[in-house]
Measured scan of single mutants.
Amino acid sequence: MAEQVALSRTQVCGILREELFQGDAFHQSDTHIFIIMGASGDLAKKKIYPTIWWLFRDGLLPENTFIVGYARSRLTVADIRKQSEPFFKATPEEKLKLEDFFARNSYVAGQYDDAASYQRLNSHMNALHLGSQANRLFYLALPPTVYEAVTKNIHESCMSQIGWNRIIVEKPFGRDLQSSDRLSNHISSLFREDQIYRIDHYLGKEMVQNLMVLRFANRIFGPIWNRDNIACVILTFKEPFGTEGRGGYFDEFGIIRDVMQNHLLQMLCLVAMEKPASTNSDDVRDEKVKVLKCISEVQANNVVLGQYVGNPDGEGEATKGYLDDPTVPRGSTTATFAAVVLYVENERWDGVPFILRCGKALNERKAEVRLQFHDVAGDIFHQQCKRNELVIRVQPNEAVYTKMMTKKPGMFFNPEESELDLTYGNRYKNVKLPDAYERLILDVFCGSQMHFVRSDELREAWRIFTPLLHQIELEKPKPIPYIYGSRGPTEADELMKRVGFQYEGTYKWVNP
């Protein structure tokens, strides 16, 4: 592979701008107003304001973009700056750019259920340069409990009458099928589907988006991507930290609602779906819905739930269990780990287990898709061969690698495990991989909904998990304890083995 010439960040961002501006969906010269509902909250200060700053800094926003914060707290732009700027990672050389960014910011205080507050917000936006005809993007960085009041008031008082209007809704989209349907029906009564952007930030990850290209742009994968060759698929999300004093919020939802029903299920769809007619948003989402419709409700015998306990040999936070978090209700049975087996009941995947695993306070930070292939028929190497695996590593250190057998150097035919490896950090030294939120917010500006969740996708996802969630809430089974920093409950490994996964433990990928 030829040595790549190092590029400056300015040059890299210039390439990104060229890609972005050559499309006809990006209205570079139009006025846009980006409204952050819930501007005083954690999500706004840690993710949304920093993301908008990065896009502005790199010249990736339309030229005439204004940012308006809205929340109940009586704040000023200076207050917003004070709480969000520490997350910007701005350099001293960017000081003038930073001043320009905050000059485009404003803030309006108001209630979430008060019509007069929204009329005041609308008047404020109209007073901005060309504000009355601007395109408006409303980001709901809010708890779902206020979605209905907020969307109703936005629709009645704050819509642009000339430009387009788009609304970005953060997960969780309800707690179960019934609450999700209620919320979807409410929002759909106010906005068209092409105006609604239900954001799952995992769909903005580079390697998640790469799944489609790997599958449908490489001839070698087509013939082997089926039940005849693939023994099982494992989708993993692991965090090495616990709730760390923020367990009160987590306890309301648990690990299945927080990660599995959305992030992991979306990745499953991209692995299992048929080739779409095109890369058009609805063509892709149509195929994802077909996959979900082929999955039956989760069966309790295919589920393992766990909850982390303190590690007596650990240090600091590792010595504390979930129930030691003062914000967690006493005696909570909320799971911090889950392993679930699903089956896609169609011709391509009949009988292939899709194993979804996620948890907190585990032994490493990792998100990946792992396809394990069947054993080689007619073994001539005296059971020395391990199964081939194709691994798409989402985070950290984005990579695609194939675990395969090669001859060990020497005189004899002794096979050993090795890999074919594409590590993004080595291959793409001159490429700026956008943060997931950067990519998705740019998608909203461009009107691309491919990486957002459609209402029928959402409904099918909740259909699969709601009976299990209701059973857990009714019966309150005690989750299996696992030690902070471990791989999780051993019962999860036993479940995976029972459905056909072979864990060798003899080879570990190392970032080159």
Rank of each mutant, 00 (worst) to 15 (best):
V12S: 13
S179T: 13
Q28F: 13
L75M: 05
C158R: 01
S180M: 02
R81F: 05
A141W: 00
F237A: 03
R57K: 12
Q11F: 06
A71P: 00
H129M: 14
N218C: 01
D176V: 05
Y202R: 15
V150E: 00
R198N: 03
E148I: 12
R219L: 07
Q133R: 10
K205S: 14
Y197D: 00
R57Q: 02
Y49W: 06
N126Y: 07
G174L: 09
Y147E: 11
R257P: 13
E252D: 11
A6P: 07
E3N: 07
E63G: 14
F56E: 01
N122F: 04
L43A: 05
Q178S: 13
L60H: 06
S160D: 07
V5A: 10
L96Q: 13
I234Q: 15
G242D: 09
L203Y: 15
A115V: 12
D79E: 11
I256V: 13
E94T: 03
G174A: 06
F250K: 03
F250D: 06
E170S: 09
W54N: 15
N64E: 11
I187L: 08
M159C: 10
F88M: 08
V108G: 01
F191S: 00
R166M: 02
D100V: 05
K171V: 05
E94G: 01
L203T: 15
F237V: 07
F102Q: 02
A127Q: 13
R166D: 00
D251V: 01
H201P: 10
G254W: 01
D113A: 09
E252R: 11
A141M: 02
H32W: 03
M125A: 08
I67G: 00
D181P: 04
K47M: 13
L43S: 05
E193A: 03
S132L: 11
Q119T: 12
G23E: 13
L60D: 02
K95Y: 13
S106T: 10
G38R: 00
D24I: 08
P223D: 14
V77L: 07
T76E: 04
P86V: 10
S29Y: 13
T65C: 14
R57H: 02
A115S: 14
Y249S: 14
Y49V: 01
K46I: 06
A6D: 10
L60Y: 08
F56L: 02
M212H: 05
D30L: 08
H124C: 08
L98H: 02
Q161H: 11
E85L: 09
N105E: 00
I234Y: 15
Y139P: 01
D200I: 14
S132E: 12
V77D: 04
L190W: 12
K45Q: 10
R246P: 11
F34L: 03
E206A: 11
I168G: 01
K82W: 06
W225R: 02
K82R: 11
S29P: 10
R246W: 12
L142V: 08
Q111V: 10
H27M: 11
E3R: 15
S188R: 14
K205P: 14
G23M: 15
Q83S: 10
I256A: 02
Y197A: 00
A6R: 09
N126H: 09
L130M: 12
R104S: 03
A25L: 05
P144M: 12
R74G: 10
I52W: 02
M207E: 12
P92S: 12
R215W: 01
G59L: 02
G248I: 14
E19G: 07
A231D: 13
V150L: 06
I15V: 09
L7H: 10
F216N: 12
L96V: 08
W53K: 01
L20D: 04
Q11P: 09
N126D: 10
G174D: 05
Y249C: 14
V146H: 10
A141C: 05
N122V: 09
E94D: 12
T51Q: 06
F101H: 00
P172S: 05
N165F: 03
A116Q: 10
E63W: 13
I36G: 01
E85S: 05
I154C: 05
R74I: 11
G23K: 09
Y118S: 01
M125S: 03
M159V: 05
K47L: 14
S132M: 10
P86W: 04
T236N: 08
Q161S: 07
A39V: 03
F221T: 15
I154Q: 00
F102T: 02
L190G: 02
G242N: 08
H155M: 07
N226Q: 05
Q178T: 10
E99L: 02
S157R: 13
V146W: 10
E193Q: 04
S8R: 05
F26A: 05
N135S: 05
D114G: 06
G131W: 05
R219G: 14
T76W: 02
I230K: 02
A78T: 03
N122R: 07
H186I: 07
R198E: 02
S84I: 13
G163P: 01
R81H: 03
F102P: 00
I224H: 05
E94P: 00
V108N: 02
E156T: 09
I167H: 00
P92L: 07
G14A: 13
N218R: 00
P62I: 02
I154R: 00
W54Y: 13
E3M: 09
G14K: 15
D42P: 14
D30I: 06
S84P: 01
L130G: 13
G245D: 13
I67Q: 01
Y249D: 14
R219T: 14
H186V: 10
L211Q: 02
I15Q: 08
H129Q: 11
L43I: 09
Y147K: 13
F191R: 00
S188G: 13
V213D: 15
I256Q: 01
E244Y: 12
I196P: 00
L61T: 03
I80N: 01
R175P: 07
V5I: 06
F26I: 12
Q178A: 15
A149T: 05
R120I: 09
L203A: 15
R72L: 06
M159W: 08
F34R: 00
W54T: 13
D194H: 04
R198W: 02
A78E: 11
S179W: 03
C158S: 03
F241L: 13
S29G: 12
Y107V: 12
F253C: 11
V12P: 07
L137A: 07
S189A: 06
Q111W: 13
G131L: 03
F101P: 00
G14N: 14
T65K: 00
L16Q: 06
E252Y: 05
L60G: 05
Q111T: 07
L130F: 11
S132C: 11
G110M: 02
P240A: 12
R57E: 02
N126Q: 07
G59V: 01
Y249E: 14
G59T: 02
K82N: 09
G14P: 07
L43M: 09
K89A: 13
R120P: 05
E193V: 03
L60K: 02
D251K: 04
A141Y: 02
A127Y: 05
I67H: 02
K97Q: 15
D24L: 10
T145K: 12
R120W: 11
D79P: 00
I220R: 03
F138A: 01
I199G: 03
I196S: 00
L140V: 10
N210I: 03
H186C: 11
E3Y: 05
K45S: 10
G23I: 11
Q119C: 14
R192T: 08
I162Q: 04
L96W: 11
Q83A: 13
Q28R: 08
P144A: 05
E156S: 14
A44Y: 02
K46W: 08
V5R: 04
F221L: 10
V146P: 10
R81S: 04
F237S: 05
A44F: 03
Q83N: 02
N135K: 15
S157D: 08
S117E: 07
R136H: 08
N185Y: 07
N135T: 03
G222K: 13
I80A: 03
H129Y: 03
W164D: 06
R175L: 08
H201N: 14
Y202G: 15
